[in-house]
Design a binder for these strands. Structure first.
Lengths: 307, 307
DNA sequence: AATAAATGATCAGATATTGCGATAGATAAA
DNA sequence: TTTATCTATCGCAATATCTGATCATTTATT
């Protein structure tokens, strides 16, 4: 058996790297400075090379030291995930779970989702975070959130993706606005009559591709930052836009002189849950996505036979 | 600081999993049986759940135990790679290095490459292994070989790929075989006049795509398993085939009544080195690929102004 | 049924590792 | 020079790891 570095040694090394200071690192690890000093020395011995250059009053990690720190971090993270794994096995869906949700979903289901989880998982302390898709993926990668709920398709190989539900788009317009009864090809809509969210918004892309909108002339250059601004434009400028079923079910049109023109056949976005592939709480997440999947499906349900 | 499982405990757990037997596992770890027994118990305690069901005369890993073993293996591998990393830093390119090479490369450069490495890296004990691309990637994944040299493009995201050199294809044919002086479009060659290796062979694909051969009629249905069989067919059946520069430079046509029709403009395969992304010998491999890259380039060099 | 072999758990005691506190040594700041 | 800061070192204590002998249980053999 080869003599490998120990978990503790790696933890201590990481601490020194974080604090760039032996004393403070030792404090953070709840051990004495001397202990840490000798631990690092032993580690350097087993690895057969210097990791840290101790100078007058400052530290300096060697190239190889930096590389070792990177790998050590991964090893520690993996080891902690083993503990998480066994813990979530013993106490399913307990403790804190931080879920990131994109705005065009959170607006409509954050509150009922929170209520739902409170009932379903009474051991769980759910924390919701609202942000854009990009930001959420960043947070997910860095461990600031445990899972992300966003609209698919969204290109990412980095994480495990679990599809929960289809959320169909409907065409909506002012109740007085006359529109051809049969709008099979949406590209035939009048010039500048289609209002959308800002271009960077993932829902804009989803609406465009799901509705096969390729004639840019019919799209109004105005870019809304949120759905309510968008709706007010549609209301006053007598245009049209696309709303996901989830928004309609949440009553976004209530009290407004805007009506839906019915669901558009195969135009939909998908709601999905993402998590880190290396997570230790895989059981938790599977269980969570199963239950929440049912809930989200319900939120996206199309009213049967509604005239 | 949370109480994490130790590296040793994980190693012992893996040993028990491998041997499915406490006694033999202990032996393999060079520790007493009692030590191992208590180590596993301590591990189960820190993880808070049972990993192994000890029965009458047999072992049985629990579901969670199996999962822990999988993750433990990764942690141990990563930890060992840290040791490798520092070792290769102290003694660059020393010890054993096992390199897999595909047949259509190995045939021509295995011997001179071995000689080259003997001179360049006198601390290195190079072991060459010849096998097909697929098999080599399998071996690479399972750690049976350290690097693989194969012909690109070859689709794989699993490994780091380092391109070494372009190896151009030339059209060759029997010296008495008349061929249009200007064969700009190879699809115009006579029916069944093009001989190739078997369909599964990566060089077949590379030749086809590099030479933009899309008219299947001109390809002879015979499939050769190696280049020498292929050449004998070309020789006796008066057909043509494509050979990489590497083969020509190695003198494969010497003594044969076969001549080259000159290099085909942009028709080439690339020779590349692949290694596991998580390797600890990254410095070694970079150094190796740099030097060997020069060597392979030389082996693929096209004779200037040769008439 | 009696006996032997196999296997993992347990215990006391040895050894190794990890920990602490005090202090030394070296350097920079006052 | 004095003081403050910082890591290394040393003796010693606590803890973890390891060993060898032994136990309890089950299975195979006689």
């Amino acid at each position: 058996m080869t003599n490998l570095p120990s978990i503790k040694q790696l933890q201590y090394l990481i601490a020194v790297h974080q604090h760039q200071h032996f004393g403070r690192a030792a404090e953070a690890c709840f051990i004495g400075q001397s202990t840490l000093s000798s631990a690092i020395q032993t580690l350097e011995e087993t690895l057969g090379c210097q990791l840290i250059e101790r100078e007058n009053r400052s530290l300096m990690f060697t190239d190889i030291g930096e590389e070792v720190v990177i790998r050590a971090k991964k090893i520690i993270a993996d080891t902690m995930s083993v503990k998480e794994l066994t813990k979530s096995y013993k106490h399913p869906l307990s403790g804190k779970l931080t879920l990131g949700v994109i705005p065009t979903v959170a607006s409509f289901i954050a509150a009922p989702l929170y209520q739902f989880c409170l009932q379903q998982f009474n051991q769980l302390q759910l924390v919701l975070v609202e942000d854009t898709s990009d930001k959420l993926l960043d947070k997910l990668e860095h461990g600031h959130i445990d899972m992300a709920m966003l609209a698919l398709p969204y290109h990412t190989e980095r994480f495990h993706t679990q599809v929960l539900a289809k959320d169909h788009f409907s065409l909506v317009h002012h109740q007085d606005y006359e529109i051809a009864a049969d709008v099979s090809d949406l590209n035939l809509l009048p010039d500048k009559s289609v209002f959308l969210l800002e271009r960077e918004h993932c829902m804009t892309g989803h609406a465009l591709s799901a509705c096969h909108l390729n004639r840019s002339d019919c799209i109004n250059p105005f870019e809304a930052a949120n759905l309510h601004t968008l709706l007010s434009m549609v209301e006053y400028q007598n245009g049209v836009t696309f709303l996901p079923q989830m928004a309609l079910n949440a009553g976004i049109l209530q009290g407004k002189p805007i009506v839906t023109n019915g669901v558009l056949g195969d135009a939909y976005r998908e709601i999905g849950l993402l998590w880190r592939k290396t997570t230790g709480r895989i059981h938790d997440f599977r269980l969570f996505s199963e239950k929440v999947g049912e809930f989200v499906n319900q939120q996206c349900e199309q009213a049967k036979k509604e005239n």
